[in-house]
Simulated scan of single mutants.
Amino acid sequence: MEMTKATGFDESERNAVYRAIRERRDVRRGFLPEPIPNELLHRLLEAAHNAPSVGLMQPWRFIVVRELAVRQKVHQIFLDANKQALASYEGEKQQSYAGMKLEGILEAPQNLCIVCDSQSSQGHQLGRRTMPETAIYSAVCAIQNLWLAARAEGIGVGWVSILEPTLLREALKIPGHITPVAYLCLGYVDAFATDPDLERAGWETRTPLKSVLSLDEYDSRWDQGRPAS
């Protein structure tokens, strides 16, 4: 088996990796009409396909969504789910929610649905007998790979989770044994925000690393509703 020497990347390469992680954003606005070239889309999907997976099961499946009529169906599913979500809030929180843009389904020239085949025989159940949910976790690793590669390529990605899964299955003809994991909007954008949209909108603030870090055992302060300060 061919091996490579276990050395780190040089400084510029390390900086690029950490920059992609630091500057990755969930993009909902500012998509440009220019389509993503097929060779670039392939690179992004290849990056996703190189993600780690338990038992080497590679449970992810990629549904590229380009047809406007299909995206319109998905957009309507979002509108209905978003209306229900809005009704679940009250007062200032409801007003704040109503003012946020939470998808770019029609604006982005490219949509992508990533689903997971948790029952796939590939991998021979290695690592899944005690934790079957690791199949979904593996698919999420693929999503993160794609997201970081997209940022490095100057492509915006927005994850739309305000969708009723059953209706999304119907719109994309996803069979019952397959789990929809992420519906993404992809495309070139006019700019990347310096801070996450939800933070700039005052919806939530990020917590420092020290508040979610413990040594040797679970920190009971985490059960008080927020990470420990």
Rank of each mutant, 00 (worst) to 15 (best):
E217R: 13
R128D: 03
P227F: 05
S96Q: 15
I143C: 15
F31H: 05
L186D: 00
L148A: 03
L146K: 04
Q224E: 14
E170Q: 15
L44V: 03
M1W: 04
L126V: 14
K83C: 09
L213G: 00
Y18W: 13
E217M: 07
L148G: 01
D216W: 04
Y218N: 00
K5M: 13
D219P: 02
S220A: 14
P165M: 03
V74A: 04
E2R: 11
L68Q: 13
T179Q: 12
N50E: 05
A47L: 06
Q94I: 06
Q72V: 03
K101L: 12
G99M: 01
R128L: 13
E107K: 10
Y97T: 04
N82A: 09
K101N: 12
Y183E: 03
R25K: 04
S121N: 11
Q110H: 13
L79C: 12
M100R: 15
D190P: 00
T205V: 09
E11F: 12
G30I: 01
K210Q: 12
L40M: 11
P59K: 08
E34C: 01
K101V: 15
T7H: 09
E153T: 04
R22I: 07
I105S: 02
W203T: 08
D197E: 15
R151A: 02
G127K: 05
L168R: 08
T4Q: 11
N111P: 02
A171F: 03
F31Q: 01
D216I: 00
A135K: 06
V70Q: 10
I114A: 08
A191H: 15
Q224A: 12
P175L: 04
M1D: 10
T134G: 02
R25W: 02
M57A: 11
G154P: 02
C185N: 12
Q110V: 09
E13S: 15
E217I: 02
A98H: 10
W147Q: 14
V140T: 11
S12I: 13
A135H: 06
M100Y: 03
A139S: 15
T7D: 07
C185P: 02
K210L: 10
Q58V: 05
L106Y: 08
A85N: 12
N111D: 06
I155F: 08
H124P: 00
V64K: 07
L167T: 06
A191Y: 07
R151C: 01
R28A: 03
E153H: 10
S229T: 11
I105N: 05
M57W: 01
H42L: 14
E67I: 02
L44Y: 02
A228Y: 11
I162K: 09
F62V: 05
Q76V: 07
R206K: 09
A142W: 08
G99W: 05
I105A: 05
V115G: 07
I155H: 08
I114V: 15
Y97D: 05
F62H: 07
R66D: 11
S211Q: 08
A135T: 07
Q144G: 00
S118E: 14
C116F: 06
R61P: 00
I162W: 09
L213N: 00
Y218M: 03
L44D: 02
T205K: 14
N145G: 05
S12D: 11
A193Y: 04
D190V: 03
N145R: 06
T194Y: 07
G99D: 09
R151M: 05
T4R: 13
H75L: 08
V115H: 08
G176I: 08
